[in-house]
Design a protein around this nucleic acid. Sequence first.
DNA 1: CTTGTATGGTTCGATATCGTACTATAAGAT
DNA 2: ATCTTATAGTACGATATCGAACCATACAAG
Lengths: 156, 156
Amino acid sequence: MKRSATPDNPEISDAQLMFDVLNEIGIISQLSRALLESRLQDGLTQQHFGVLNHMVRLGDGCTPLGLARAFQVPKTSMSHTLAGLEKRGLITMAPNPDDGRGKLIYLTDAGRDLRNIAISTIAPDVIAMIPQFGRDDANAALPLLRKLRVLLDEAR
Amino acid sequence: MKRSATPDNPEISDAQLMFDVLNEIGIISQLSRALLESRLQDGLTQQHFGVLNHMVRLGDGCTPLGLARAFQVPKTSMSHTLAGLEKRGLITMAPNPDDGRGKLIYLTDAGRDLRNIAISTIAPDVIAMIPQFGRDDANAALPLLRKLRVLLDEAR
DNA sequence: CTTGTATGGTTCGATATCGTACTATAAGAT
DNA sequence: ATCTTATAGTACGATATCGAACCATACAAG
């Protein structure tokens, strides 16, 4: 199980540690995505929900590229996600008056409602996790994750 | 016990905390996947690499369903991933002598080699992160992540 | 005012993901 | 033995993801 942590090459075990961290993160992401999507209707994905949630929390009128950066996905992926949201009437896309190339994304009432319903639907699952995970551990984990995310983001 | 923004309903901010944790995890997962796949050739994905790595570390001769459970993906997804690995000559699939329905997956030499090459290719990036993230923080994060993963797994 | 280059966005094709439905074998209960 | 239910895996279709190529606009330098 334990790879030889040869004292002359401590980097190996350090690298293994980071691999393990990223591996756990990958599986948690997979699990939380599956949990979320099992609660969403109409083939909505985590990305769809994420975009709606982002705009409710931080305000709409943002650009497709800005959203792509916020979620760290290629702009082509965001383009497809936004097309799906527009097709469902959850957002509208308007040309950017300040930039002839760009667009601005706005929530519709339906989009806002759907986000709020989704939150209510998922909240019990999330709240149920807290006593088991522990508020202290959650509070401890968040800054570590933020730091790691920023690091990975800068290292791109 | 709680310094809450909404004293009448502390669960709200706790839920927000967990949402934030899962959100950071999702983005980190996205970033590390992008980083990994940019280093892999021949259209290999994180799943492909993950399966090879899993078998090198924990031994091959495992079943498709066992792998699907290990990675928390539907068995149809694993079926597709394994087909891709077999097509590339990185694994072989044999009928399970103890179960007429099942198969057993074995690494080929090419599969083992590819995994080792991939590890060597990625290791510098991972090692470079360590001094910035901090070994202590990595050591602190891992058990928290494991706990969260187990929790989510059980709550499925 | 051109020209070159950078930026915002879409289109398209290849592949991945995953739910539904299906086949085949296994295993337990009459 | 037969029936029932559970399990391992695949086929297929719908959608998601993403890189390459592309278009249009912006912007900077002559």
